[in-house]
Simulated scan of single mutants.
Amino acid sequence: MTDSVVVFSGGMDSTVLMADILGKGKNVQALSFDYGSRHNDRELLCAATFCQEHKIEHRIVKLPFINELFSSSLLKSGKDVPDGSYMEENMKSTVVPFRNGIMLSIAAGFAESIGAGEVLLASHSGDHFIYPDCRPEFNEAFSRAVFMGTGEQVSIRFPFANMDKRDIGDLGRELGIDFTTTWTCYKGGEIHCGTCGACDERKYALRYDEGFDPTNYAI
Rank of each mutant, 00 (worst) to 15 (best):
P82V: 07
D164Q: 06
A205S: 12
D41V: 11
V146N: 05
G172Y: 05
P132N: 05
H39M: 13
G25M: 09
S93P: 04
N162F: 10
T182S: 09
K62L: 09
N100E: 08
N67T: 02
H124A: 03
D127N: 14
K55F: 01
F33P: 00
A198H: 12
C196M: 14
A48P: 01
Y217T: 10
G126A: 09
L63E: 03
Y208N: 08
A107E: 07
D213K: 11
T215W: 09
I106P: 08
V81P: 05
V154Y: 01
D41E: 15
D178T: 01
S113Y: 14
L44K: 10
C193R: 07
E43C: 09
I168L: 05
C196R: 11
A111F: 06
V7I: 14
I168G: 03
Y208T: 07
L63G: 03
G101C: 10
G126W: 00
A107P: 03
F65D: 06
S37V: 12
S32G: 11
T94F: 02
Y208V: 04
A47T: 12
F160S: 11
P97G: 04
S77F: 01
K79G: 15
F158H: 14
S113A: 15
K62G: 02
P136N: 03
K26G: 02
Y35V: 09
E140A: 14
L175I: 06
I130P: 04
P214N: 07
S125D: 12
F50D: 00
F110L: 13
G211F: 14
T15P: 03
H54N: 12
Y217C: 06
L45G: 04
D80W: 04
T184P: 10
I191D: 03
N100C: 06
P132Q: 04
D3F: 02
C46A: 13
K92I: 12
